[in-house]
């Protein structure tokens, strides 16, 4: 089995007095697609935000990335290590052009060279031809699906080792969702590791190597994508019977 790239141990987060996450343990190996599914408010987004350093973790939590402890590292420094987080709701820069959005994405990589930058831009344009057509348009003028693509492409511009996607299917038409998930598989095949957070459990589990199920701040089940897809409890709770 490949090496572990990201390891989360006893991750706990409080929002004031409210416990959002309790002793979450995750392990992601290089080259995997791992999905974290769960219903609204289960703590999926909080998990990602805690990993990438956007929310404070409770004492005792430990996050290791590429063998280095990043539990207390600042968000922008974690990015510099090669972790990309495509946030929920896309959060592209609306009045920057598509090209400028991509350029902003590359800012996170300190070792970026001009040649590598040009290569990456071409890579994104090949993955997402729509973005090439619209490279001069303002990011905010794109459709929802295109914005999601832009958000992913922007993340890939920093040449990350792990890509964490937060609900990429949110608010998109089923046909667009299919496109996006095909792309996610393609991105993995290009040698990146993927942590995918989804409410749309059936699609997520169908492309995932392994999955975790989260309920009210705790991991309640884990297994391969297939195991979880056929698990009666998961079926009942997330796949509509």
């Amino acid at each position: 089995m490949a090496d572990t790239i990201l390891k989360v141990e006893n991750l706990s987060v409080n929002y004031g007095y409210i416990v959002a996450l309790q002793n979450v343990n995750l392990e992601i190996k290089k080259g995997e697609i791992v999905t974290l599914i769960g219903s609204n408010g289960a703590g999926k987004t909080t998990t990602l935000m805690a990993i990438s350093g956007l929310v404070e973790k409770r004492h005792g939590s430990k996050v290791t990335f590429k063998g280095q402890d990043i539990t207390k590292m600042a968000a922008n420094k974690i990015v510099h290590m090669g972790m990309c987080h495509v946030p929920e709701g896309r959060k592209i820069f609306p009045s920057l052009s598509v090209y400028e959005n991509l350029r902003a994405g590359a800012l996170g990589n300190k070792n970026m060279t001009k040649a590598r930058f040009a290569e990456l831009i071409e890579e994104q344009y090949a993955l997402f031809p729509r973005l090439k057509e619209r490279s001069k348009q303002a990011g905010g003028s794109l459709s929802g699906g295109e914005q999601q693509m832009l958000a992913i492409a922007r993340g890939l511009m920093m040449d990350p080792e792990i890509v964490m996607l937060d609900e990429p299917s949110l608010g998109l038409a089923p046909i667009v969702i299919e496109d996006i998930f095909e792309l996610i598989v393609k991105i993995r095949d290009m040698g990146r590791t993927i942590l995918l957070i989804e409410q749309n459990a059936s699609v997520a589990l169908s492309i995932a190597d392994r999955g975790y199920v989260m309920e009210i701040g705790k991991i309640t089940m884990e297994g391969t994508g297939k195991e979880l897809l056929t698990n009666p409890e998961v079926k009942k709770a997330y796949l509509g019977g």
Partner: peptide, 19 residues
């Protein structure tokens, strides 16, 4: 570009590795 990105969305800017 960094300045404009920060002015539009601070959280997303953090995620881009911008200080």
């Amino acid at each position: 570009i960094m300045l404009r990105a920060v002015s539009q969305n601070k959280d997303a800017s953090y995620l881009m590795g911008i200080n």
